[in-house]
Write a protein that binds this DNA or RNA. Structure first.
Length: 117
DNA sequence: AAACTGACTGTTA
DNA sequence: GTAACAGCCAGTT
């Protein structure tokens, strides 16, 4: 569990998820070029030590729901709410509103550069 | 070494 | 709407 293992790649990517947005396990896997390795992303999150600095709470399943059970789920929801993310009546996050969109980020960056030019 | 277990997901029925 | 299944792979029996 070191070097540039799959887990490390996952952590590096999860660290880039902006505050107030969420990504799905599958999305992380896809961005890493492992389209069907969502489960391993879940493993990576599970293996995470408590004070790793990785914003694990920003990773939810493809429905926009929390995939944990028990008190861990409560913690995740609390963390996300504190970041400004809202849940609907069924405990679901609107990926439309809060989903991480790396491509849009790039676009915004480009637009900003154009403005400054 | 083999079988089993998941913080998953898209497809198929 | 539900259910089964395949694909993926690290860790744990």
């Amino acid at each position: 569990m070191q070097e540039d293992s799959f887990f490390q790649q996952v952590y590096a990517l999860v660290r880039r998820i902006p505050v107030g947005t969420v990504a799905s396990y599958g999305q992380i896997a896809t961005l890493l070029g492992k389209r069907r390795s969502a489960r391993q992303v879940g493993w990576a999150m599970r293996a995470l030590p408590p004070h790793s600095g990785v914003p694990w709470q920003r990773v939810v399943n493809s429905e926009g729901k929390i995939s944990l059970s028990g008190c861990s789920a409560d913690l995740q929801e609390a963390l996300l709410r504190s970041e400004g993310i809202e849940f609907d009546a069924s405990g679901k996050i609107s990926l439309e509103r809060f989903g991480w969109q790396p491509e849009l980020e790039e676009r915004r960056l480009q637009e900003k550069e154009e403005d400054e030019r």
